[in-house]
Amino acid sequence: MHNTPGRRYLRTAWQTDAVNTPSPRDSPRGSSSRLGIGKTQWSDFTAGARAIAPLDPGSFVFGLAFGALVQVSGFNSWVGMSGSFLVMAGASQIAIVEGLRIGAPLVVVVLTALVLNSRLALYSAAVAPAYSGFPRRWKLGLAYLMTDQAAAVTLQYQDRYPDPARRRWFVLGASLTFTLAWYLGTVAGVVLGPVIPEAWQIGFIVPLMFVALMVPALRHRAEVVAAVTAIVVAVAFKDLPLGLNVIAAALAGIGVGRLIK
């Protein structure tokens, strides 16, 4: 599908150059540019931003919850906030703050965070084909911005952007805006504290965001089998420590899904 003619945007000789060297037409400056970014790039960027926009409130609210946790934990606000910039992965940040608050050793806390985030290695592999035509510095930057949500949106839209020189702007628009919502939410949470009543149970946005990412994109039988297997394994191995049941479930889902034609 991603090789059908007729859906070629700007397919010129430099497209193949874009693999390793930055294209000279990367960001044409001129009357049609904004912030030094060309019109086409800007429209791809905003398309990415729009694609992920329904998830931005979830990112903001989750950031708000993390910020509020920092505030009530009694840690330095600036240091607490820095977690959203340095780690940029919600569940692991919460695990770090909670762990240190109850006096767990640094090594244990960091390892817990890394185990929780090891699923990002799976997403990193999943988006690798979509990123393969990007210049190295783009890969390095976009890797930092990669979240579950940005990766899932990238995978859903990659075929609509067969040209890597345009796809990278789409990916940047989706990844950066979602991350900005996370930063803003964190800052607001640290400043405002726990403004959201406990009774609202905003933790529900986690499964809801992931349902909204996964279910509409389910197409093939192998994907459904992979998802169902993962659910069964995640609950069957619920007693594994450090959230390892999630990793086991994802790997089992992939493995069993591969058995389906």
Partner: peptide, 29 residues
Amino acid sequence: LGGERELPEAVTKTLRLIAPAALAAIIAN
């Protein structure tokens, strides 16, 4: 995995199952 060479089909098929499996695992958890 992001080099220029084409990945074998077995690999790309596996990669396509990562998102549904990982997302479902987090939903269940």
